[in-house]
């Protein structure tokens, strides 16, 4: 029992070390790809970012709407319904925006990346590339990783803005909160540091979600079952990593 625990711990450390080395290799190759093969990165920003826009916008709108409803209902008990804008802005910019975007991103773009790369491996496309003296890490993995890293902060910003719009629609237009108070309170209590916290989170989550998706796809067992499992693991591990990191970054920021 203790032995098994020990071995699974060693196994975990080994995987984690390999993941870090993999991350460093991606980073080391990133500048060259950004400069010389920018077209490849743009295409992946389209795949990971632009194609995730609809789901991000719909979810952002409804999350914002719920914040408007809940905020109004609860703050009204203290006659503080004017603060609903502040409440929504803090929630969206610092927590819900980055976290929910990262989870949606891994569900939409991360799984697509992992299964695409896994299938490329299963159908020997990666081997074929190596045989053509083209490094799949540079040609396939780095552009996809960078595409995700660039997309995430942009998607988070869009999510938060649409969320605020949703909150405004519900609180001001439907429930009758004064629009001047809605915006004024938000502006006076929000500081630039709060916005930065969200931006930094979204960047970190972007790196983590893209890294894990690319890693899982690249290390998938090259069978139908293996690719399926890699896709599932991408979502599960990303969700866990994002929530743990969210806690850690928040703890540091406060």
């Amino acid at each position: 029992m203790l032995r098994e625990l020990y071995f699974s711990f060693v196994d975990f450390l080994r995987t984690f070390g390999a993941l870090q080395l993999f991350f460093l290799r991606l980073l080391a190759n990133s500048p060259a790809i950004l400069v010389r093969r920018f077209g490849l990165v743009v295409q992946q920003v389209y795949n990971a970012g632009a194609l995730s826009l609809v789901i991000i916008m719909i979810c952002g709108f409804f999350v914002g709407g719920v914040l408007g409803l809940q905020g109004y209902a609860n703050l009204a008990k203290f006659n503080a319904e004017d603060s609903v804008g502040t409440f929504a802005a803090f929630s969206l910019l610092k927590e819900l925006g980055p976290v929910i975007t990262a989870l949606l991103f891994s569900g939409r773009a991360g799984t697509a990346l992992a299964s695409e790369i896994g299938l490329m491996k299963a159908t020997e496309q990666l081997s074929a590339m190596e045989m053509m003296a083209v490094d799949p890490l540079r040609r396939i993995l780095v552009p996809r990783f960078l595409g995700g890293v660039i997309s995430m902060p942009l998607l988070t910003a869009i999510f938060s803005v649409i969320g605020l719009f949703g909150a405004h629609l519900v609180a001001v237009d439907l429930l009758g909160v004064d629009p001047g108070a809605f915006w004024q309170q938000m502006r006076s209590s929000l500081e630039i540091g709060d916005v930065w916290e969200g931006i930094i989170k979204s960047m970190v989550f972007g790196v983590v979600a893209s890294l894990l998706a690319v890693w899982e796809g690249y290390n998938a067992i090259p069978t139908a079952e293996g690719v399926g499992r890699a896709t599932t693991r991408t979502v599960v591990i990303t969700a866990i990593a994002v929530l743990i990191l969210d806690f850690m970054i928040t703890a540091i920021a406060i």
């Binding site: 159908t123 496309q125 081997s127 074929a128 190596e130 003296a133």
Partner: peptide
């Protein structure tokens, strides 16, 4: 290794075309 591989052309069992 990569400059050696440029001298190779390999045909894989299932083609391995980039989809």
């Amino acid at each position: 290794l990569y400059s050696l591989r440029r001298r190779f052309g390999m045909l894989f069992q299932n083609g391995a075309l980039l989809t």
